[in-house]
Amino acid sequence: MNTRKMVINTIIAALYVAMTGIFAFMSFGAIQFRVSEMLNHLVGYNKNYKYGVLAGVFIANLMFSTLGAWDLVFGFGQTLLSFIILEKLFKPDDSEMKRMMMTAVVFTATMVLVAIELYLVLDLPFWFSFVTAAFGEAVVMVVSAPLMKYLNKIINFAEKMA
């Protein structure tokens, strides 16, 4: 990875951490709306953004989560698994909006890992945790899609990472 891509991914990681920290009160637990998850949409523009998002997830969970190592494993694992699935699903001719919707669906479905974590660590009911965590993820991903599309017109995410 060249210096430019490393710097961009460092900025993405810092944004993820900052956004998670600012909204920490609603970024963790069974009912969560992690605003920083909107940055997951970046992989729809270029798969190399995954490094910055993954680093951001790891650092944010390390700094702000009350679940400690559990969140490093399950939260990071949920993001990594989602990116692996999306790399297999994305086709070169997919539209911007199709990629965003696939990203929203995959990240929402993989919240099953967070539900397992909440069940194991906090003894919360699995289905309650899955439904509420998945709902929060879906809301953030769907609501942020138009914003990311708008920002892409200004920034051109694919070109920046090229």
Rank of each mutant, 00 (worst) to 15 (best):
A55H: 10
V43G: 06
V17E: 05
M97H: 04
L147S: 06
S95R: 01
L62Y: 15
K5C: 01
P92G: 11
F28S: 03
M97N: 05
V143Y: 15
T10H: 00
T10Q: 01
L72F: 14
Q32R: 15
K88A: 06
Q32M: 11
I11A: 07
V121H: 03
R4C: 04
T3G: 00
L151C: 10
L72S: 12
K5L: 01
A134Q: 02
I31C: 14
T103S: 07
V53Y: 03
F33E: 14
F28V: 10
K98D: 05
M161V: 05
V121C: 06
I11E: 00
I8M: 00
N2Y: 00
M38Y: 12
E96P: 02
N61G: 08
K47H: 10
M6L: 11
M141Y: 15
V57Q: 12
G44F: 08
L42Y: 03
F83I: 05
R99M: 02
A24T: 11
V17I: 13
F157I: 03
L89D: 00
F25V: 08
I8K: 00
V106S: 04
I85A: 05
F107T: 05
I22N: 04
P92K: 11
A162W: 01
A133Y: 04
R34G: 13
L67R: 15
V106R: 02
N48E: 07
K160W: 02
Y45D: 01
M148Y: 12
K98W: 03
A13C: 09
F28C: 12
M6C: 01
A109K: 09
N46V: 05
A13I: 04
M38P: 10
N9E: 05
E96F: 07
L151Y: 08
T20Q: 10
D71P: 09
R34T: 14
G21Q: 10
K5Q: 09
A18S: 09
Y49N: 04
L113P: 03
L124V: 13
T79H: 06
F130S: 04
F25Y: 11
M101N: 02
G44V: 07
F107Q: 10
F64S: 11
A109T: 14
S95Q: 12
D94Y: 09
I22G: 09
P125G: 03
I85V: 15
Y49M: 02
G75Y: 06
F128Y: 14
